[in-house]
């Protein structure tokens, strides 16, 4: 019988994930620090690519170099929060589905949703990028002379959560293919999340609308950093409302929920041809 899920229970589950994360870190601190450092270097490198262009040319389109830095700080914070809560393939969900590992979750006395929410929490190894992102945001904020108020901070948190919802929903939407084609679609979440990340660091200002609009709708990379950053700087792009990212996140989350549930129903009736009794995949 499944446990009763309360806030206290969720905090306890997060604590278990944090403890496992700390155990991994302490198992071999040298390797763990290398892994954390490598992750930070990689994310800063991806973000700095566009900043170096902005610095060289004194800005990109209608954004100054400091505004681009602000946008990249936002992007780095997103990768930081992602690593903080998504270190257990719980956001790269196609891997769990494709490898037949959903079975492992089914036998736990916890609802699937609760397990997925809490299983990727990695505060000790996943928090580095968030710290770097916050530092970059403070630097950019000072250079831009931003007037920081509690309302602004609340807006920042809301936009960060909205962006995360969009990322997770898109990953789950795409990952639903793994219910039907587990081998071929095992890495489709990576394609949806990681392969597009460089594109999400592009400032879209100055580009034709034929490029901007698809990147705010079909492939929402413009919503990963560019659009929310401009809203936080008080310059909503394309004369659209500052609430557009929230609306988009809601719609894609609903679509993902419907598609994922349908896939899950298919999975529980057919099972996975990759699952073997000792838990490894074919």
């Amino acid at each position: 019988m499944a446990d009763r899920i309360t806030l206290k229970r969720i905090i306890k589950l997060l604590a278990i994930s944090a403890k496992l994360d700390l155990t991994w870190l302490l198992r071999d601190a040298k390797l763990a620090l290398l892994a954390i450092g490598g992750d930070i270097v990689n994310n800063v490198a991806i973000a700095s690519g566009v900043f170096l262009i902005a610095a060289r040319f004194g800005g990109i389109g209608d954004m100054s170099a400091d505004e681009v830095l602000f946008m990249l700080a936002y992007s780095t914070m997103i990768t930081g929060i992602f690593a903080l809560f998504g270190s257990g393939n719980n956001i790269h969900i196609s891997r769990i589905i494709g490898r037949g590992q959903l079975e492992h979750l089914f036998i736990q006395p916890l609802p699937l949703f609760t397990q997925l929410v809490t299983s990727g929490f990695a505060p000790f190894t996943g928090g580095g990028n968030l710290i770097v992102g916050i530092c970059l945001m403070v630097i950019a904020g000072k250079r831009l002379d931003l007037h920081i108020t509690p309302w602004w901070i609340l807006s920042l948190i809301t936009y960060l959560l909205t962006t995360l919802v969009t990322i997770i929903a898109r990953s789950y939407f795409a990952a639903s293919a793994a219910f039907y084609a587990p081998v071929a679609a095992e890495e489709i979440s990576s394609v949806a999340i990681d392969e597009t990340w460089f594109l999400s660091t592009f400032p879209l200002g100055g580009m034709p609308q034929a490029i901007q609009i698809p990147l705010l709708t079909i492939l929402p990379e413009g919503l990963m950093a560019w659009y929310p950053s401009l809203c936080l700087l008080g310059k909503s792009p394309l004369h659209l409302t500052a609430y557009y990212p929230m609306l988009y996140a809601l719609l894609i989350a609903l679509a993902a929920r419907a598609v994922f549930r349908k896939g899950l129903r298919y999975y529980v009736t057919r099972g996975s041809n990759r699952y073997v009794p000792y838990g490894f995949r074919r």
Binding site: F57, A181, V191, L199, F202, L204, G205, M207, I211
Partner: peptide, 28 residues
């Protein structure tokens, strides 16, 4: 199953071309 990767490559390339157009048009 190769198409998602190819599609992402195309979707990155086209905006990148426009990004350079925007940047270079600044006249530096």
């Amino acid at each position: 199953y190769l198409l998602p990767n190819i599609l992402i490559k195309v979707c990155t390339l086209v905006p990148l071309l426009y990004l350079w157009r925007v940047v270079m048009s600044a006249g530096a």
